[in-house]
């Protein structure tokens, strides 16, 4: 009887904590790291924020592939700065994630072991300079559509990080589009290069918005916690509606025979997405999955002695300081 009484009190307390938490979210107030939160909320946020952080740092690799070969000094500097921005995004997203009680090392382990996912688009190869334009225009474009709603998501550190991420991403998108515009105003070879890049990146960019709503497992809960404001299919439609006119301005043809503006709905109808390809890449069978993970793993493993040295040196300095103080 006594135990039962205690349990009832605990249940009551838990219920009231949950009510306070739900009420805060309903009032659009932020949940901060020290606030009480349900375990599932914490886990879901670790999963999503770390997945996002991993995407930023793995995303550095396909674009990094063209830094040394950029065609002009101006483009080289802009690309370097862009890839550096991605590293910065990774840094503050990992930091936001760490506030939920997980270490950077654990997060990296999850990435390196394949337990954690990252955006599949980065498993496609960058084959020409135009791919750098196409990634900025399409991949950053799709990322912005995904991410703008996150600026008002319920978890404070994530929401604040996203405000800055989105500002920089929109700059990257304009930069990418400007690369495409320059190519499309150039020689036939440059136009062909731009068209080829669009042909290869269009469908993976559409897949980036996630599986169709009936296949998406996390949508309902995520909507409740304001981790999502629109469904994947709504976001995809928004991306297509926004991007097709941009392709028209460039004079490029979107590689979809079924793409057509629908006067009744006010949206573009589009063809079937090859979800088989999407799931294959998610499962690790894309052209660059292995290279991307091994590049990240090598950087981390080869850097171990450097990190150890920094810690050892700091310890020695601290010891010296103590001795001097004594």
């Amino acid at each position: 009887m006594k135990n039962q009484g205690k349990k009832n009190v605990r249940d009551e307390q838990m219920k009231s904590l949950e009510e306070i938490f739900e009420a805060k979210i309903a009032r659009d107030e932020k949940i901060e790291p020290k606030d009480w939160m349900p375990e599932k909320y914490r886990k879901t946020h670790i999963r999503q924020i770390s997945q996002h952080a991993h995407s930023e740092i793995v995303g550095m690799l396909p674009e990094g592939n063209w830094i040394t070969r950029a065609p002009s000094l101006r483009r080289k500097v802009a690309l370097l700065a862009k890839v550096q921005d991605e590293a910065g995004h990774g840094l503050y997203l990992y930091s936001a994630c760490e506030t939920l009680g997980i270490s950077r090392e654990e997060l990296y382990d999850q990435l390196h072991s394949g337990k954690a996912k990252y955006s599949s688009i980065f498993n496609y190869p960058t084959l020409t300079w135009a791919d750098i334009g196409a990634i900025g225009w399409l991949v950053d474009g799709a990322a912005i559509i995904n991410q703008v709603p996150l600026c008002s998501t319920s978890f404070g550190p994530y929401a604040r990080a996203m405000v800055r991420v989105c500002k920089e991403e929109s700059f990257h998108q304009r930069q990418g589009y400007e690369i495409m515009m320059t190519l499309c105003n150039g020689t036939q070879e440059q136009k062909d290069m731009a068209q080829d890049a669009l042909d290869r990146w269009w469908w993976p960019a559409l897949m980036m918005l996630g599986p169709t709503d009936d296949e998406s497992t996390h949508t309902e809960q995520s909507m409740k916690w304001k981790l999502k404001r629109k469904t994947n299919d709504e976001l995809r439609q928004q991306f297509i509606d926004q991007t097709v006119p941009q392709a028209d301005i460039l004079g490029l043809k979107v590689p979809d025979e079924d793409l057509k503006y629908n006067n009744e709905t006010g949206h573009y109808d589009f063809g079937e997405i090859d979800w088989e390809e999407f799931w294959q890449v998610v499962k690790g069978h894309g052209m660059c999955n292995k290279e991307r993970i091994s590049a990240r793993k090598n950087a981390w493993d080869n850097g171990e002695w450097v990190r150890d040295a920094a810690v050892a040196y700091a310890d020695k300095q601290a010891e010296k300081d103590v001795k001097e103080a004594v």
Binding site: I57, M60, G64, K76, L80, G90, L91, A299, E304
Partner: peptide
């Protein structure tokens, strides 16, 4: 710039890229 994305930590990666950016800016 060959090292961008391959640094031993994210912090050193960012710092080294900054140095590359400075040097290339001076070059220009």
């Amino acid at each position: 710039s060959e090292l961008c994305g391959h640094g031993p930590t994210l912090e050193t990666d960012i710092a080294l890229t900054n140095i590359a950016l400075d040097l290339l800016g001076q070059t220009r």
